[in-house]
Design a protein around this nucleic acid. Structure first.
Lengths: 135, 135
DNA sequence: GACATGTACTTGACTCATCAAATATCATCC
DNA sequence: GGATGATATTTGATGAGTCAAGTACATGTC
């Protein structure tokens, strides 16, 4: 009785639950991995917390709290903006880059395992379809 | 630099974040909706908490806690199993069925809106691909 | 028929993320 | 050069879920 659209979103939720349970490596959750990958794409300049929030779909306060343990572990660092005292730039530390690279190896393996029933073409197709959701 | 598999899973996480933010209706979160839909499929018999956990990919303790507000609101009810005093059956109340039916209308609309860039065929295809994840 | 082991939950402590409010700073307009 | 309002971020209270341990009952074994 749920519509096709809802059924598809249910499958999405199910898949997401499976993925977050499976991918967790070097003490990094899948959500943290996501954040760090955005930061690596932003090297060497870094990103503002607000931009991070938009890019990983967290609230700004969610970002503040997500960064806390990462800063404490020396994975990311913060530089206050000299021109705007409210703002700061977040970037990966050297150790953070290394850790991320290390983490990506087992993470990639687990990701492949999760998608092992799909061909490469289907995987790309899935990605394209997912990217159409919401806009 | 992340693999194709990881990129696809990132798209999945992004899509999931979009969906959970968008679908919330009659004070029911998307996660609650998911639970109630399983329960509706299980009518009139109901389901054990443990079965629910497996079906929506929560831990048993997550189910206990998810049911608490739903019981309080009279949306689901619990019947102790006379043959096994540890166990119980959870089922939708009449009010719960009504509420769920009401909620599904706007939820369906929002779901369609989220998927509006996909044809019906693509939506079904997306669902099939998602169902292959993890097994 | 008592004991060991297993099953069905529930609870306590904790993490993660949200919302709303607070804080601090910047930008504009007069 | 203040007052007014927007922007960047943090904080307090709270909801949602996890894991590990606890409770209560069932089951199989000798």
């Amino acid at each position: 009785m749920p519509t096709d659209a809802i059924e598809t979103l249910l499958a999405l939720a199910q898949a997401h639950a499976t993925v977050t349970r499976a991918i967790e490596v070097q003490g990094l959750s899948f959500a943290e991995l996501r954040l760090l990958l955005v930061l690596r794409a932003a090297q060497p300049h870094g990103r503002r917390p607000t931009e991070l929030a938009r890019e990983v779909l967290l609230t700004p306060s969610g970002v503040t709290r997500a960064l806390l343990p990462l800063e404490k572990r020396g994975i990311v660092e913060r530089e206050r903006d000299p021109d705007d005292a409210r703002a700061s730039q977040i970037r990966l530390t050297t150790a953070g880059v290394t850790l991320l690279d290390d983490a990506l190896i087992p993470a990639g393996e687990r990701a492949s395992k999760l998608l092992r029933r799909l061909s490469l073409g289907q995987t790309k197709q899935l990605q394209r379809l997912l990217e159409e959701i919401g806009r």
